[in-house]
Structures are given as structure tokens and as C-alpha cells.
Design a protein around this nucleic acid. Structure first.
Lengths: 292, 292
DNA sequence: CAATTAATATCAGAAATTATGATAATAGCA
DNA sequence: TGCTATTATCATAATTTCTGATATTAATTG
């Protein structure tokens, strides 16, 4: 039965154009390649090359086989790359839990960089609300967490502050609050507030409930849609809201006690005393520069 | 360097759960598998199995390698399937030119059947207007053509009549013709007709231009859209028009001289005196039953 | 707990595969 | 017409893989 060496000879012969050149490149002797290709042809019962001319030229059938051979060899390269990555201790998978509010424009660039540097390591994104994330990190269900900080710090996980993310108070353009020039906290109280909340019912500390009425979602994109549907007002990450504000689908409220964007701190969470592989460490370092 | 046999041993051991069972299945002796796996582990410098227990169990690293090994073996199977298909003379590719009006509901089933029977043969669909197709067949640019027949028969290509395809005369619901109970040919003349025409400006014989004014497209789906936009009336394949008629987006005209659906003949075209491989012949036979 | 069963590891020699080096034949080229 | 570079073939050498025997051990059974 043919082996990978045979396929390698075949592909390399096509590449270089001759058996001799292939032999030189693979560190073999010409007759080895000649016999190797011949035995491959016998095994497959297909004539791969037309030898009537000086340089062997692919037959139609040969070029069809070539596609498969190349594809097999590519995967062998992948396998070898994977073993190299295993030897250097790279993880099979890195799991990142993040608040959907933190799907910043820079993030895809980081993921691309990850894919370039750790091509055989899988990346799993768990998108949940901030209050649920520290539990996932603690339980070892994810390697890293990316959250909007909470007041009470969980000392069982490592915290790394990476910056502040500006939030805007917004409502629908036809919402009663939109027509008001200046708003105080008391003005907001009568209207329904839309708040992020984890599935375990703990709210986000940075944004304590202000209004008497509040609705909850565990995803900022849902809240985004609810604001635009006029269901209430909310604090939303500026990078999410700005797009809709520019399209006049949302209105940014002018709040008196809030003359600069309210910017809660963002943190990376990582389990304490756990072995971190190079891919997790790389991701951790990159996430530090998520906020400019 | 490891070989495909090694990978096969590895995958089969995982499958069967033991070296002995793997050996039985692969027609080898137990020690061959034991040594084979051991040498694979040396080559990769990875411990694939944990032997502390009776049955070897995959290590975390081993299961990562397994994915790659399986994927390589799958492709080797594909290569072998391809050689089998080459030996039986199957084509690398079948090219079918068809009128977009003939994208009948049965067609995808035929394509699925093709994919099952000829998994390594590519299928290329060239979607052009009927009048252009016989030229493509004649020039050898496609293997098969599927057309609405034309009056003048091109004797340089083989014709095979497979049935009639009903057409309906339609217009937009708010078109002036829609309100008329009975229509004669003379009634149609003043209104713009939308006609299929190939890129070489020859019209379709089955539908000679009736109105003084006509617009042209080389694709029935375009004509479909134009009819619904009220740009004119047209003869459309029933299977295309019925859907829109049911939704009241089109109106079927009641034409006096046309008490049954007008059903032009459909033909398959195939080049004369050309070698046809099994895939082309299969497709040819299946297309014969395209029209029930 | 002892006996049994079925599995794995190891090893030396056999078998098979693959590589080598020499040689002959030939296509392309100056 | 030589010259060069290439391919095919062949006997032999080297390497790899397989075989069959044996020792050991993990589960199972009574």
C-alpha cells in the first residue's frame, strides 16, 4: 500500500518538474523516486505521468489525483504543527466568557491574531452577562473572563483592571424623556429603566437600578432593541449606542449629574493558582490593550 | 517517519478500544499494533494512550491528534474513491447548460442523486437563455444542454425531446389587461410584452413576439420581477408563475385562443460523436424524467 | 483470595519494503 | 554530432515492519 512518502514524492515531482529534482529536494536518490512513483502508479492502478517526453508531465488522471494528494499532505503538515504545539504546551482550547457589552471593534483583530499565533488551538466564546462570569471562571468552566467590574470583589479569582468603557444614557427619539433639555436623577425615576442582569438575578453594581420600574435582559443587544422600541431608557456602551444615535434611532439624554460619559471599569478575570498555557497567557496580554 | 498504516492503527485502536481488537480488524498480529503505535508515539513525541489500565485510553494530547489522523484517513478514502472512479472512466466534471426557466422543483433531487453516485465528479451549471445553449454544446463548452425547443433544429447536435412545460400568460394584478375577462391576440398587441432573448439576439421561437412593443431579458427570473413591477405582460413557466399567482402578485390572463396552458417542448442537447462518460450518461438519463 | 481470562510489552528472527549505486537508453541542446 | 541531464532497470544493501513466542499484568469469576 502506498505511503505518505509516495504522495510526497508525487507532489514534489509535479512541483519541481522532474524525478531527479524531486529526489534532490527530498534527499533521496533518483532511482528511489522513479521506483516510488512507479509503485504508487501500480497501487492506484493509474498512470500519473506521461513519460514520452523528457520531463514527466501529469496526465489528466494524475492531475485529478494530485488534488487529493496535496490535500492529504496539507493535513499531515497540520498534524505535525499540532504536535509541535502540543510539545510547547499549547492548550487544545481557550475559553473566554465575556459580557456582550464588551464586543468592542478591536476584539475581532485580537481573535485574528490568536488564530495566526495558535492555529491549532480552538477558541470558545461564552457570551453572558457580567455578573455570571466570575462564577464560570471560579468553576473552571472558562479560562478567562471579560467583565464590567462589580463592587464586591471576588477574591477567589484574579482581577486585572484594563480601563474604563464610556456609557451613554439613551432612550428612543419619541420617548418623553427625549424632549427634555436637562434631566436630573429624579426625572428618570418615573420611567421604565432597562437593565442588564445575570441569570442568577444579581444586577450590575455600576448601574444600580434608578427607576422604580425596571425591566431586565441578560444581553446588551436585546436592551439596545428594547430602547429603540421605546420600551424604556438605559445606560448603553457608547460604542454600541453611537451607531444608532447617528442614525437617529436613539436619543442620547443630557443628564445634569453626568456631564461626562459614565465609564465603569473593565476587568479581566482569571482563575487563581491554575496552570495557564501560552495561548491563554497570550489572550490575557492582548485583552489588556482592548480599551485604547 | 510515520505512515498511513500507523495512523490507521491509531484510529482503529481508538475505535475498537484495544490493540488486540485493532490487530484483528486490520488483519495483523497484536505485537505489530503495539509496536506500530509505540513507534508513532516516538515519531510524534507524544504519548497517545494511557496504558496504566487494561484498555488503553486516549490521553488529552492523543485525542487532539486523533482529529487530525481521522481527517487524513478520510481524505485517503476520498483519494481511493477517486481512483476507483477514474478506473471506471468517470469524468472529472460534467457541465450542464440550462435555461433558467427550467429550474424545476425536481432538479435539486437529480443533483443530489448525482452527488451520491459520482461523489468525486464536479458538476458545473451554466445558466443561460435557451437560444444560446446549442452553441455551447456544439463548441464543446458544456456536455449537456437543457432547453426550450426552437423551431429550427440544429443538426450538429443531438436532440432528445423529454416533454412539454406549461406556460401561463401573466401580467401584474393592476395591469390594464388584468381586468379584461376574455382576451384575443389583438387585445395583447398594444401592451408591452416581456420576452426571453439570448445574448446573440435570437428570440425564442415558441414565443414569437406578439406585441408591437417588447422588452427583453435573458433570464426568466428577471422577467418575473418585471411582470410584477407592471412593466408588461409575458408568458412564464407555470411552476414559476403559480407561486406568485397564489400570492396575488401576478394575474393569469384568460386568453381566448389559448384554452389550455401553452406548453412548448423541452429538449436535452448533447454533442454528436463525443465520448460520454458514465456521469454524463447518468445525468442525461435522469434529465429525461425531469418533466412528469 | 486464588484461578482464569484477555490484554500489553518485548524480543529475535523472518519477511517485506525501500534505498542505493551502477548501468543502459534517450531526449534535448549547442 | 557530441554533450548533458534525465529516466528505467537491476542486484544488492539497508531499513522497516511483521511474526510468533514469552513474560507480565489488569480485570473477572468462583
Amino acid at each position: 500500500m502506498y505511503s505518505l512518502e509516495h504522495l510526497r514524492m508525487f507532489a514534489e515531482t509535479v512541483e519541481t518538474g522532474s524525478f531527479s529534482a524531486c529526489a534532490r529536494k527530498l534527499g533521496k536518490v533518483q532511482s528511489a523516486v522513479s521506483q516510488g512513483i512507479a509503485s504508487l502508479e501500480v497501487d492506484l492502478d493509474v498512470e500519473l505521468f506521461d513519460r514520452s517526453t523528457r520531463k514527466p508531465t501529469l496526465t489528466a488522471q494524475g492531475s485529478r489525483i494530485l488534488e487529493f494528494a496535496r490535500s492529504i499532505l496539507r493535513q499531515v503538515d497540520d498534524l505535525n504543527a499540532a504536535t509541535a504545539s502540543i510539545q510547547s504546551g499549547e492548550e487544545a482550547e481557550v475559553r473566554l466568557a465575556m459580557d456582550s457589552a464588551l464586543a468592542l471593534p478591536r476584539l475581532p483583530r485580537i481573535f485574528h491574531g490568536f488564530s495566526d499565533r495558535f492555529p491549532t488551538t480552538a477558541l470558545e466564546i461564552v457570551s453572558v452577562a457580567s455578573p455570571d462570569i466570575s462564577g464560570l471562571v471560579k468553576a473552571g468552566e472558562v479560562d478567562l473572563g471579560l467583565i464590567i467590574s462589580e463592587a464586591e470583589i471576588d477574591n477567589e479569582v484574579e482581577h486585572c483592571f484594563i480601563g474604563n468603557l464610556p456609557f451613554h444614557a439613551v432612550c428612543a427619539p419619541d420617548h418623553p424623556l427625549a424632549s427634555r433639555r436637562h434631566l436630573s436623577m429624579n426625572d428618570l425615576i418615573p420611567y421604565r429603566e432597562l437593565l442588564l442582569r445575570g441569570v442568577d438575578k444579581t444586577g450590575l453594581d455600576a448601574f444600580p437600578k434608578m427607576s422604580t420600574l425596571a425591566w431586565f435582559a441578560n444581553d446588551y443587544r436585546t436592551i439596545c432593541a428594547m430602547v429603540m422600541d421605546g420600551l424604556g431608557w438605559a445606560y448603553l456602551p457608547a460604542f454600541l449606542a453611537d451607531e444608532w444615535i447617528a442614525q437617529s434611532r436613539m436619543h442620547r439624554m443630557n443628564i445634569r449629574f453626568d456631564h461626562k460619559p459614565w465609564s465603569p471599569p473593565i476587568e479581566i478575570l482569571i482563575a487563581k493558582e491554575t496552570f495557564q498555557g501560552p495561548a491563554t497567557r497570550w489572550m490575557f496580554d492582548e485583552l489588556k490593550s482592548l480599551i485604547v
